[in-house]
Design a binder for these strands. Sequence first.
DNA 1: CCAGTTTTTGACCAATTGATAAAATATTAG
DNA 2: CTAATATTTTATCAATTGGTCAAAAACTGG
Lengths: 232, 232
Amino acid sequence: MTRSEKKAQLPSGDSPKGRTRIQREKRELILQAALEVFAASGFRGATLDQIAEAAKMSKPNLLYYYSRKEDIHRTLIARLMETWLDPLKSLKASGEPVEEICAYINRKLEMARDFPRESRLFANEILQGAPHIIDMLEGELKELVDEKALVIKGWMRDGKLNECDPHHLLFAIWATTQHYADFDVQVRAVLGPEKSGEERFEAAAKFLENLFCKGLKPKAQAPGSQLSGQSG
Amino acid sequence: MTRSEKKAQLPSGDSPKGRTRIQREKRELILQAALEVFAASGFRGATLDQIAEAAKMSKPNLLYYYSRKEDIHRTLIARLMETWLDPLKSLKASGEPVEEICAYINRKLEMARDFPRESRLFANEILQGAPHIIDMLEGELKELVDEKALVIKGWMRDGKLNECDPHHLLFAIWATTQHYADFDVQVRAVLGPEKSGEERFEAAAKFLENLFCKGLKPKAQAPGSQLSGQSG
DNA sequence: CCAGTTTTTGACCAATTGATAAAATATTAG
DNA sequence: CTAATATTTTATCAATTGGTCAAAAACTGG
């Protein structure tokens, strides 16, 4: 047992990434396959057979890398969460308010465009009552949102933004941007087949910027003048 | 066989509502239970056992009324669709534009508040690729939306509304209102437990009216003057 | 090449799933 | 009450599900 540290290293979930090259690759392959399946059917609706088939491996082989269905799901959710809150974290109090919010909207919209499966995975989780992430929602997310809500409130007090409830503003941004990932089928159906994906998201970006910024900017700026003299 | 029309009337799905009182009541009971379960777990994730338990009857008994899981789901979706498009249908070209749109937003928000399970049922269906309603989305829904988009376009040409893409406007209204039903768990988690349901929806209504209408109204109306003289 | 390790496979399992058949019970019409 | 009908229950089924096990195969460092 002189080399006990090299013996029987099962790829358990707690190891950072997996010891061998094959483990890293296969695990990633499984996660991608599972992301597809979980996003389309939710946790309960997804089956290991589906995931195994999508990953082009046998079910026992899959279970060699993730010994439980829930482990796969948990890993996906955890990885998603790492990046999901990032755009909001980037909202800088020191920036120009309208620009910051527009940038946030655009980043969220880009995520809906580039990571629709992640968005649907999240949507499924929330729809099902968020059993796996309710703690994070009530903890980390709430804290982050409350913090940023204060920043936005501050902008409003300074007259840089129209008064409105910052929490609901964030909800509206989440809803409108994620809609293009989560309700993609409906959006496509309504817009018709002629519009390409790029066109859809370009039009969406333009619309959302107009909706939020025209609504948020202090009103009554005549064309040409930067800021109105409206006091209050 | 003089009375063949009265013989062996199994409560098949195509009959209008069911012949007997019990059939009507039990079928309704099942639908309510199934709505709960399908909304929470999606079609694949929902099980007949769950539905039967929620309806407080045995599984074979349940299957006596709906002989297939899919029949229950189909019935729920069909019933939902009847009422789902109603608010949009009520958007009257003859009405005052901003008022019409605000009324639409409010009706949609009320539906999210009063029928969250229906909203989640719909969200689940769309998330899973809308396998059961894709035809309606590409047919009836698209036609209705295109028609109302023309109405809105007309309002914009008349200068009654800010220019924007009417399709994306509708998407934004759907997304923001349904968000309060579909992402209810997240909304609650972020707002904290102190806010009651009524408070949440009141604040949401106020915020959305402000967001959409301030953004939609032709700008630059100074307090007191009805319409700006901005030409072009 | 070889021993040790990692990966893959095929055969299996118990539990759950959607669904059926028939007997037993309740309801209703005459 | 009685007979026909409608409803419920019990027992059961085949398929699917998440998961196990041991053996086989492939890969690794020496």
